[in-house]
């Protein structure tokens, strides 16, 4: 039986995210919160169209953030 030589080294690379990624993350959460507040408050104000526009915008921003985060993580 041939002897197996272990010559390969395995590395775990830990990459620190740059500071601006955290800032963008916070802004993203803030924007979703802002849009959601306006959506919920517009419903209370009995302004259905405004509520819908804000809910849709909140959903789009949320989804966009998730997709970007996913694509970045795969890189």
């Amino acid at each position: 039986m041939a002897q197996q030589v272990v010559s390969k080294k395995d590395y775990i690379e830990i990459r620190k995210r740059p500071w601006y990624v955290y800032v963008i993350g916070l802004l993203w959460i803030g924007l979703i919160g802002f849009l959601a507040q306006n959506a919920a408050a517009s419903a209370q104000e009995l302004e259905p169209r405004a509520a819908m526009v804000f809910w849709v915008s909140a959903a789009v921003v949320l989804l966009a953030g998730v997709v970007i985060a996913f694509l970045r993580s795969r890189k």
């Binding site: 306006n38 408050a41 517009s42």
Partner: peptide, 8 residues
């Protein structure tokens, strides 16, 4: 005339 609940 709109009400003032939404932050916008």
């Amino acid at each position: 005339a709109k009400k003032d609940k939404a932050w916008i």
